[in-house]
């Protein structure tokens, strides 16, 4: 399972890197979103991979090694919210740039031939 998660995080992040190096804003925003998904998965995996273990229990008298680490799950929730908000903000700027410059190139103008 570790290998599958590692490869998928790597592939998604790699695709993100390739996309943010592209010149069009649509490619850029897609790349940023892919990268944020990969990062979220990565944080989640940093709590180690478990199957069928609850993160929280009301009963204090239980062996903690039988439970998943709840902290990365809390971190990932925060990261998702913040990533979502900043991406939405970026979309607004993108639309503004498209309207003002008439081009969807990241430099705000078409490259000269």
């Amino acid at each position: 399972m570790e290998l599958v998660v590692a490869i998928s995080v790597g592939v998604v992040f790699g695709a993100g890197i390739w996309l943010i190096l592209r010149p069009r804003t649509f490619q850029l925003i897609t790349g940023l979103m892919l990268m944020s998904y990969a990062v979220n998965l990565f944080i989640f995996a940093m709590g180690r991979l478990w199957v069928n273990r609850p993160p929280i229990t009301p009963d204090p008298g239980i062996d903690p090694t039988q439970f998943a680490d709840p902290l990365p799950q809390a971190l990932v929730l925060t990261a998702i919210v913040i990533g979502f908000a900043t991406t939405a903000l970026y979309l607004v700027i993108m639309i503004g740039a498209r309207g003002l410059t008439g081009s969807d190139h990241v430099d705000g103008e078409e490259p000269r031939e």
């Binding site: 990062v39 900043t86 991406t87 700027i93 740039a97 410059t101």
Partner: peptide, 21 residues
């Protein structure tokens, strides 16, 4: 401002991902 703002935001978003990693 829109032109530089777009680059500024993109760079800082990527930097934030690095921060998280």
């Amino acid at each position: 401002r829109i032109r530089t703002g777009m680059q500024y935001v993109a760079i800082n978003l990527v930097a934030s991902f690095l921060f998280l990693i």
